[in-house]
Nucleic acid binder design. Structure first.
Lengths: 172, 172
DNA sequence: CGTCTAAGCTAACAGCGTTAGCCAGGAGAG
DNA sequence: CTCTCCTGGCTAACGCTGTTAGCTTAGACG
């Protein structure tokens, strides 16, 4: 394991344990037993660490969605992963996608599960992503009134999509 | 106009012109011709300014949606406003909602247009909000691949909703 | 044995939000 | 008129942030 990977590991642990505000260069260095400026021997700057975290988060999310066989279970898996890893989810979606720093294939791999359940329809997959992301993002930001029945909201939203979807074994 | 309102005005202008990174206490004070610590005579801290901006953004967004007669035009108005005021939109939705600082009725007023086009169905309104917010948020964050046909995505998403909606004059 | 590089170090800079404490000017009371 | 008190400025400073410059040490390699 390179020192760079080690840094990103520590950053990820720090992010999940103590929130984005805790991921500072000095704190990171502390955890590694070195001084903050020494980090720059391995990393160009903080934004590079963030980009690495973003890539990692995308891969984790994609992995969590891989097994979902159909739309409802995909939706459930998406929401469950985001709620279990809110900081990683935020960094995965809130940061502008640093495509030039992203390993090739990562973006496509993250999109694959969504594309699968829409039968390869790119437009439908994007609409589905928007829906899932929006619901999760608002929930994480505490924007729905306390007590709002979000299970019902997800069920409602997905039922509409299933109803509109032609699907391989179309009803009727 | 109180000095406090003046501060929030400057903050809003600064936010829209130069982005969230430019809204600093010192820069704010500069624009007003005073020193940064003097701001604290009128405002408890930066977070109070942000909360005021958030409230303002919610009101602006609500106003922009007010005139929309039906779901498609509401969707169009939502997206158009967000794209025209990306910083305000971000501060309106990304920040955890500071309900205790929000003037009463603001949250309800912002929700009203959505509720209207879902015929008062709270669950449907929330699902719709999630959809619209998700699409806008991903677009603003540059998450869709360059060249993606987002008009088509919106059309697709809204068509599904209209199809599923019972509506007053349901299609025979 | 000498040299070069990798990876650490300290000191420092500019900027951030924020606090403490001081001071001028104006309003209101006696 | 004068005294007092409050408002709204000010400067200096603290601790934090990311980052740079420049020095040093340890190890690898010819």
């Amino acid at each position: 394991m390179t020192r760079r990977e080690e840094i990103v590991d520590v950053a990820e642990r720090l992010l999940e344990r103590a929130g984005p505000g805790a991921v500072t260069m000095r704190r990171l260095a502390d955890e590694l037993g070195i001084q903050a400026p020494s980090l720059y021997k391995h990393v160009a700057g903080k934004s590079e660490i963030e980009a690495a975290l973003q890539q990692r988060a995308l891969q984790r999310l994609a992995a969590a969605l891989e097994a979902a066989p159909d739309l409802p279970s995909l939706a459930a898996a998406y929401r469950a992963w985001a709620l279990r890893h809110p900081r990683l989810y935020e960094i995965a979606t809130r940061l502008p996608l640093a495509r030039e720093r992203l390993a090739p294939g990562v973006e496509a791999a993250a999109a694959a599960p969504l594309l699968r359940v829409t039968g390869g329809d790119l437009t439908a997959a994007r609409a589905l992503w928007g829906l899932a992301h929006g619901l999760v993002d608002l929930e994480l930001a505490g924007r729905f009134p306390p007590g709002a029945d979000l299970d019902a909201v997800w069920a409602h939203a997905m039922a509409e999509r299933v109803a509109a979807e032609p699907g391989p074994g179309a009803t009727g």
